[in-house]
Write a protein that binds this DNA or RNA. Sequence first.
DNA 1: AAATTTGGTTTCGTTATGCAACCCTATTTA
DNA 2: TAAATAGGGTTGCATAACGAAACCAAATTT
Lengths: 153, 153
Amino acid sequence: MARKRFDDSNCSVARALNEVGDWWSLLIVLQAMYGTRRFVDFQQELGIARNILCDRLARLVDNDVLRKVEVGEHGSRHEYRLTGKGRDLFPVVVALRQWGDKWNPAPNCDALDLRDRATGQPIREMAVQSADGKPLSIRDVFMPDTETPSKTG
Amino acid sequence: MARKRFDDSNCSVARALNEVGDWWSLLIVLQAMYGTRRFVDFQQELGIARNILCDRLARLVDNDVLRKVEVGEHGSRHEYRLTGKGRDLFPVVVALRQWGDKWNPAPNCDALDLRDRATGQPIREMAVQSADGKPLSIRDVFMPDTETPSKTG
DNA sequence: AAATTTGGTTTCGTTATGCAACCCTATTTA
DNA sequence: TAAATAGGGTTGCATAACGAAACCAAATTT
């Protein structure tokens, strides 16, 4: 039967995954963060099939993660640019990247070295933090009773 | 043809997505963070098909995100528990959850309310941060030249 | 002993993915 | 000016993944 979708799940993680949780969408967003904007460039840099790229770009546009901008005189060239919502995936992508760098380091690829443009200092490691900025593990937090962890929480 | 996999990609985001980037894996990890450990409980709480759950649990175990623990006398009951690597996905899940809460709020579901067990205070919003803890947007950072953004960077 | 729980596997039909080929409109190049 | 190329897709086909339900076997409960 049809792949299960989560549009109506009462779990926002499930709904988020519905928008960017497939094999390609988050890589497209990542590529967009690197500055890629054109169809052909996405296609070549990601090595994605063109029909799949079409589908993903359209869905990301539908979901307001990217927006399609006509460039050039007669509207035959487009650019796909991140929206605010798309740019807001930055912490997600960086967290995932740091996780990958930590647990699946590639021999031929350095860990992500993002730096503060203002100071040149490397960024901090992503962490769940307390109000005063201390890193918290999953054991250091709790959910007040109003949240029920059942049914994909 | 076969679904493209990224085991050997030189992008750690791609490799991370290879492990937890499908529709279910991250939800299983999330459910595990809520305390679920048994096959049947995952199945019922997520509403996932049993064969798919089998496959995903096995893959997560293979990838050392979960580990399978025999419980009970004769080894016919198992538990799937998060490993350190799995627990390290906490920032990823929280970042994704906060993104979902912000951009796709569900009418019938409150935003995540995680609190510091020590103080009872809500956690901070996930953000990429400078060395001294200031939040950074994607425009506030750069990558030194050693990183090449090409080929899914 | 019979029923239930747990953790799977098998079968089968539907959906998604990847590749290649094709199409149409601009813009270059010869 | 004709021909080639680039951009942005769409279409068809073969294969792989997914979902539902049925089936299975060991262990536990009733």
